[in-house]
Every structure is written in structure tokens, then in C-alpha cells.
Amino acid sequence: MAEREQIKKQPSRTETETETEEAAPASTEKGDKLKAELDDLLDEIDEVLDENAEEFVRAYVQKGGQ
């Protein structure tokens, strides 16, 4: 299924973004690709997340701000 550029009010796109109209198979492809990217990201992020996240959230208090 051919992809076509989405042009409505969108004069430009960066390379990293995908741009397809709502043609169903393309949309699924796009959805799968985005989901795969997100899965990779979430795998990676599990390693970065703070071990003591809950304790950090509890202790994080900021008074006196503007």
C-alpha cells in the first residue's frame, strides 16, 4: 500500500517522523513501527529508572518557589 505524504497544514516534517494518511494497512504498519520503537525504549528505560523511585517521590518537596 503506497504511503502518501500528509500535507494538510503541514509544510514540513523531519526524517524521523512517519507520515501517512489513514489508509488502513499503512496505518497498522505505522502503528506497529511506533509500538516497536516504544517497546525498545521501555526496555531501555527500565534500566534507567531510579531504584528508589517511590522514596524519591515521597522525599521530593520544594517550598518557596515563584
Binding site: 529508572l49 523511585a53 517521590v57
Partner: peptide, 10 residues
């Protein structure tokens, strides 16, 4: 879930 609040901060 506090994990999500922690991700927000992080």
C-alpha cells in the same frame, strides 16, 4: 502509581 510520578520527575 508512584513509579509514574517518579518517571515524571526523572
Amino acid at each position: 502509581d508512584p513509579k509514574l510520578a517518579a518517571m515524571d520527575l526523572q
